[in-house]
Amino acid sequence: MAEEVSSQMNSLSISETNPSSSATISLVSGDDIVFKVEPTIAKEMETVQSFIDETDGKITTIPLPNISSHDLPYVIEYCEKSIAGKITKEFEAEFVKKLNNEEVKELFLAANYLNIKKLLDFLSQVIADRIANKSVEYVRRYFGIENDFTPEEEAKLREELAWTFTGVDPDDEDEN
């Protein structure tokens, strides 16, 4: 499928070498949905922008195979707000309210991939907040981490790390 997308991309990009078409940038999600955005949005996405710069603006269709059409609108929404200078605490609170844990993690990966510093920082804070004061078991479940320590190894490690586990509330009951 990736091959298909790429050949399609190729033909698209050739047809768009006309400078007048640089008005919008087409972002193509991993599941092949095209999102047309203003060039200012692309500027917020360093990865996209550097790609455009590398090709002297001739290619305006950017495949983003790692980002799904489910996540991309969130990223675009955040970038739009950012450009408008409207990233407020209220907006961020509303924004994050819509996201479940999986979506937060996926958007984090998207922000990392696209190199959007503000979004990456914001989502890092969200993740940090969501696992704050939680037990190790909770955090493992949150990230989907499989515990590859043997019980003996873990016990030993906990003993060595008594200096950091002092005073920790084993709060494992907190629901998502």
């Binding site: 696992i131 955090v139 493992r140 981490i145 499989e146 590859d148 320590f149 490690l157 950091t164």
Partner: peptide, 16 residues
């Protein structure tokens, strides 16, 4: 973005 104590505690999540 975490408190140092919590950050250190992540070492017990897995070998990674």
């Amino acid at each position: 973005f975490m408190d140092a104590q919590e950050a250190v505690q992540t070492c017990i999540l897995s070998k990674r």
